[in-house]
Write a protein that binds this DNA or RNA. Structure first.
Lengths: 195, 195
DNA sequence: TAGCTTTAATTGACTGATCAATCAATAACC
DNA sequence: GGTTATTGATTGATCAGTCAATTAAAGCTA
């Protein structure tokens, strides 16, 4: 069996399995056995590649951040118009990958973790601040700085709220509806404060 | 020690202790020992009054819902003007009790639980829908039904998002700032669609 | 190219710790 | 004497982490 170069593949598999496992066991309820079963390997292998459960969970959180940042960056590249850039951030936030139930669960677990884990809190708040900064920067091209700052916070909060509600299966919300709501908010802000 | 009538007191103590314990151990990471220590009783007593860890956690979730519903109902009582009623819902959502870090943590844990626990999901979505219905009903007095429905979803989402962000200590957001943001959104919607 | 060595990949079996749940015992009240 | 409150001790299960053993590929040598 031992083909060489398995490490990157296994790491990816195990991280993906961790996301799925968190989805239906919760951040702390998840066991190395759960994860390993989903990745079709032995629990020992997870320890072999990640050293400990904590490191595997951390790697998973960092993976979420990286994927999201990549998605946004990809959409922003080659998009110079402020209004389009704002739209790109909104669309990216509700992109297919971010809307997967298991991914939303993992993000929620990440928030939960941040409440009592300083390292996770630092990572998460960096991402949140960068998102807001991006929005504020482009909004400033459309309206006075004061209003831009307020609108950035409002849009960021609304995105998080819609995404939180999307996590609940019983509310069956669609990405399209979420995008429409934020777009509407943005249009209103521009109508009132835009120049 | 055994004075009679300890049961209601102990139940309250244990539920409060559970909220605190969830705050710094996470929903699944919390142990009966953690909870009991915080309530200054033995783990066995928690089992005596709640039967199992699951039942204690369920009781805690139901406590959160009940407290929140009570707070909103209290603020709505004797408030007939639609605009004031909407404000009451917003203010209630960011009231002192709901802004306690431990309470926000417990709410987050509740959301997390809802992802893989149908009973919790049912409870939570009932509360979310009722909140939105309340908002929509009063908004309809101020604008056409279509716009009222959209605004209700937007306000509800923004409240959840702001509250989610308030959970992060590093973002140090205040209830006043959150209220101001939602008020601003509401004012904009009324300015555009109000009659 | 046939053998020999090294190294990566992988696992089953084991260990020690933790924890939910049980229960019998004790203590104070009526 | 009966009831409520409370606990310490115990048990059985679960789980993270370790380790020695196994497999197979890759590299080396003559």
């Amino acid at each position: 069996m031992p083909k060489l170069g398995m490490e990157p593949l296994r790491r990816r598999q195990l991280i993906e399995a961790t996301i799925e496992a968190i989805h239906d066991r919760g951040m702390n309820g998840v066991t190395m056995g759960d994860i390993a079963r989903r990745a079709d390997v032995s629990p020992a292998l997870a320890h072999h590649y990640f050293g400990s459960k904590d490191e595997l969970l951390n790697a998973t959180l960092r993976h979420l951040l990286a994927e999201f940042a990549l998605e946004i960056r990809h959409r922003l590249r080659g998009t110079p118009a402020p209004r389009d850039r704002i739209k790109a951030v909104i669309d990216g936030s509700f992109g297919a990958e971010q809307f997967r139930p298991a991914v939303i669960s993992a993000w929620l677990a990440f928030y939960m973790q941040s409440l009592h884990d300083a390292a996770a809190a630092r990572l998460l708040s960096i991402y949140l601040k960068r998102l807001e900064t991006n929005l504020r920067h482009d909004l400033k091209a459309l309206m006075p700085a004061q209003e831009a700052a307020t609108a950035a916070r409002g849009i960021a909060a609304m995105i998080d709220g819609l995404w939180l509600r999307a996590a609940l299966p019983t509310l069956h919300s669609s990405p399209e509806a979420a995008i429409a709501l934020v777009d509407d908010y943005l249009a209103g802000v521009i109508a009132r404060h835009g120049r």
